[in-house]
Computed example of a mutant assay.
Amino acid sequence: MTFLNTLRLLTFGTSLGFSVIILGLCANILSLTLNLNNRYFVFSAFGLAIGILTVLFLLPMLVIDLTRKGPMTSWIVVELPVLSVLWVLWLAVAADAVSDVVASDLFSGSCDYLNSKVNTVCNSYKAIEAFGFLTWLILMAYTIVLLVFACISQSRGNKAVWTSSVRDTDFLAYPNGKAAPSMNQYTGGSGAAMPMPPQGHAYPPNGQQMPVYQNTPTPPQGMPYGGQVTYPQA
Rank of each mutant, 00 (worst) to 15 (best):
C111N: 03
T216L: 14
M196V: 15
R68F: 05
Q228W: 06
A97P: 02
F43A: 03
T135Q: 05
F3A: 06
T169A: 08
N176V: 07
G109L: 10
L23W: 08
P232V: 12
Y225E: 01
S19T: 10
T6H: 13
A127Y: 06
F107H: 02
V212Y: 05
S108L: 11
A193Y: 08
T11C: 07
Q228E: 02
L56Y: 11
G157I: 05
M194S: 05
G222T: 13
N35C: 10
D170K: 09
Q228P: 03
N206F: 12
G189R: 12
A92I: 08
L9K: 10
I52D: 00
A179Q: 07
W136Q: 07
S124T: 13
Y225D: 00
L16Q: 04
M183L: 06
A103N: 11
E129Y: 07
L32E: 03
P224I: 15
V212E: 05
A94P: 00
E79N: 12
T187S: 07
L62G: 00
G132F: 11
R68Y: 10
P175V: 08
T120A: 09
I152H: 11
D170N: 14
P211C: 07
M140E: 02
A141K: 11
G132A: 11
L10V: 08
F12M: 11
W75E: 03
T14G: 09
L7S: 08
S182N: 09
T143Y: 05
N123W: 09
L114K: 10
W87M: 10
T54G: 04
P81W: 04
N184S: 06
L32R: 12
S44A: 15
N37T: 15
L172M: 14
I64Q: 05
